[in-house]
Amino acid sequence: MITLFNRGKALLEAHHLWNVFTYVFFGGLTTVVNIVVFAGATHVGISWQVSNFLAWLLSVLFAFVTNKLWVFNSHTESFSALVWEFAKFMFARVVSLGIDYACMFLFINAIGWSNMVAKILTQIVIIVANYAFSKFIIFKNKPTD
């Protein structure tokens, strides 16, 4: 099983797709966290707006750890560098939260779709935006001397 994994990883790395694969995998898990928290919160009677924020908050914390450690293999030299990386991550996620709320409002209030359909479709948009933010701004490879 490990040999199959290593072959698959080598093939994806040869085509520069390993980061995309790991992002999709952990992004999928992050999306599950987001949707489960949202569904649970709305199920107990919390408004979609508050449920969406709770789902965002928990999924962002999960995403930072997985993106840093396993997707982009980011290593920070100091605590201040870690704080700066986290600040950039949070800023980008706040931007994507704005996109999230705009899509949710459009799909629920303007179009009239159900909360869960809106949530799932919105997550597709968010995954793409967050990958771009993470790849090109937050965890970008630093040049070596």
Rank of each mutant, 00 (worst) to 15 (best):
T3S: 15
F5Y: 12
F5G: 01
N6V: 11
R7Y: 09
G8Y: 05
K9R: 08
A10R: 11
L11Q: 10
L11H: 09
L11C: 00
L12N: 05
L12W: 04
H15W: 15
H16I: 03
N19E: 15
V20S: 12
V20W: 11
F21Y: 09
F21T: 04
Y23A: 04
Y23C: 03
F25Y: 10
F26G: 06
G27M: 01
G28E: 00
L29H: 03
L29G: 08
T30F: 09
T30N: 12
T31W: 02
T31Q: 01
V36P: 03
V37M: 06
V37F: 09
F38W: 00
F38K: 04
A41E: 05
A41H: 00
H43S: 13
H43R: 10
V44W: 01
V44A: 06
G45T: 13
G45A: 13
I46Y: 08
S47W: 02
W48V: 06
Q49N: 07
S51K: 05
S51I: 03
S51E: 05
F53D: 05
L54W: 02
L54V: 00
L57F: 14
V60A: 14
V60H: 06
L61E: 11
L61K: 05
F62R: 10
F62A: 13
F64A: 05
F64Y: 00
V65E: 15
V65H: 15
T66F: 12
N67G: 03
K68T: 07
K68Y: 07
L69H: 12
L69D: 13
W70F: 15
W70A: 13
W70I: 12
V71A: 08
V71R: 05
N73L: 12
N73A: 07
S74D: 12
H75M: 14
H75A: 15
T76I: 05
E77W: 06
E77H: 12
F79L: 03
F79K: 00
A81T: 07
A81K: 08
L82H: 03
W84G: 12
E85N: 14
F86C: 10
A87G: 15
K88E: 08
K88C: 04
F89I: 07
F89E: 00
M90A: 13
A92K: 00
A92W: 04
R93C: 05
S96Y: 08
L97D: 11
I99D: 11
Y101Q: 00
Y101T: 02
Y101N: 00
Y101W: 01
C103N: 15
F105S: 11
F105C: 03
F105L: 02
F105R: 09
F105W: 07
F107K: 09
I108S: 03
I108T: 01
I111G: 10
G112L: 05
W113Y: 15
W113C: 15
S114E: 09
A118H: 10
A118Y: 08
Q123A: 15
I124W: 02
V125G: 01
I127A: 07
I127R: 00
N130E: 09
A132E: 10
A132N: 11
F133M: 13
S134Q: 04
S134K: 00
K135C: 09
F136D: 09
F139R: 05
F139I: 02
F139A: 02
K140D: 06
K140P: 02
K142Q: 04
T144S: 11
